[in-house]
Amino acid sequence: MSSYLHKTLVVEVRAGVTDRFPVLAHLSYTPDDPFAVTAVFSHDGRVLARWRLDREMLLEGLRRPVGCGDVRLRPEERGVARELRMEFFGEAHADGSRHHAVVFVWAEAVGEFLTETHRMVAPGSEKVRVDDFLADILAGS
Rank of each mutant, 00 (worst) to 15 (best):
H100S: 14
F113P: 01
W106E: 15
E76Q: 06
L73A: 06
H100T: 08
R72P: 01
A92E: 11
A94Y: 07
E108H: 11
D44N: 12
V102N: 05
Y29F: 10
L84V: 00
F113S: 02
T30I: 04
H93K: 11
W51F: 02
A94R: 14
G96Q: 02
V37W: 00
A94P: 03
L59P: 09
P31V: 10
H43I: 09
A109R: 14
V102E: 10
R85E: 11
E56L: 06
P65E: 11
M86K: 10
P75E: 09
V80W: 12
V105K: 09
V71H: 02
R46S: 12
G96C: 08
F35H: 14
V110N: 03
G61D: 06
E91M: 10
W51Y: 01
V103W: 14
G45T: 00
P31I: 10
P34S: 12
D33I: 14
L84K: 05
F41C: 02
P34C: 14
G69F: 01
V47G: 00
H99S: 15
L73S: 09
G79A: 02
P34E: 12
G90I: 09
W106D: 15
T38N: 13
G96K: 02
P34Q: 11
H43K: 11
E77A: 07
P34L: 10
